[in-house]
Design a protein around this nucleic acid. Structure first.
Lengths: 155, 155
DNA sequence: CTACTTGCAAATAATTTGCATGCGA
DNA sequence: TCGCATGCAAATTATTTGCAAGTAG
């Protein structure tokens, strides 16, 4: 997913390309390993345009979510995190309970569910789903001696 | 998981057994179908003890989470939901976006994930997972003419 | 020009905390 | 009795919204 494609998609839907918006996209593209919170994205964007407000970040993330350009993850810490959708689809993750790192996995349970016809049987119309796995990542498992302190990032 | 076991576990850890606390446990036990939000649990407890405050619910849920008696789920709607930790099995649900009804399904994606060895490959230690499906239930689909109004319950 | 956008400030919503009083063991 | 618990109100945190001014197309 390149920047130009995203820009085009925005334009096609009547949205304008502001420097703020471009910078938000860049921030999202640079941080593929760990979904970013609105505040983290803001910190990044502010480095370039020091007067961008946090509301702008939220507003843009909502626009991008509506266009299915990003998806919003809810971890257990109360704040949402956002990541670019790969090729239009969505992802599920292994989320570390200690450091918060999220690693995308190449598996979606919906296919198996559809094969079983569970939704049809219950006459349920599927719209969205959530599937996230929580536990400890390899880096945190290695460092299990320091457990108790929560580092900001694993990497 | 019976009430007495939970009560004992609390007592063992120096916590007292207050009527509020017992009622919260009951509410959680009665609602095994769908993880409840703090507010829903509060509504339930208030039916019996009308002066219980929402803070008490939160405080107790945090205590129970600390003892690993309940776990906190973060769905996509910004609020946390709580459920008793299952003594073995657990459930996933079809959750109606319109009326909120939740129907348990007989499928857990973790098995398929384990078969694929994804966690081993990434050296990830799985502790918990969430899987919920959102959409429209059969009753709400029948009544799709009134869409726009959100009734409190389907049934 | 004229929507869409932004920054600011104020508004919400969920959850937490301080404090004095209450109550289980 | 003693320390955990509770209710109330106020504080925090994440996120949204109203409004007037700015700007991309």
């Amino acid at each position: 997913m390149k920047e130009q494609q995203l820009v085009d998609q925005l334009r096609r839907n009547g949205y304008k390309i502001t420097p703020q918006r471009q910078e938000i996209l860049k921030a999202l593209m640079e941080s593929s390993r760990l979904p970013q919170s609105a505040e983290e994205i803001h910190n990044r964007v502010v480095e370039k345009y020091s007067n961008v407000s946090l509301d702008t970040i939220y507003r843009n993330l909502n626009v991008l979510e509506g266009l299915e350009i990003v998806s919003r993850l809810s971890l257990k810490d109360g704040k949402s995190r956002y990541e670019l959708n790969p090729g239009g689809s969505h992802q599920h993750h292994l989320i570390c309970l200690r450091c918060g790192a999220a690693e995308a996995i190449d598996y979606c349970p919906l296919k198996a569910l559809r094969e079983r016809g569970i939704a049809e049987e219950k006459k349920f119309e599927i719209r969205e789903h959530s599937f996230e796995i929580f536990g400890y990542c390899s880096l945190c498992r290695e460092r299990s001696d320091e457990i108790g302190k929560l580092p900001d990032k694993c990497s």
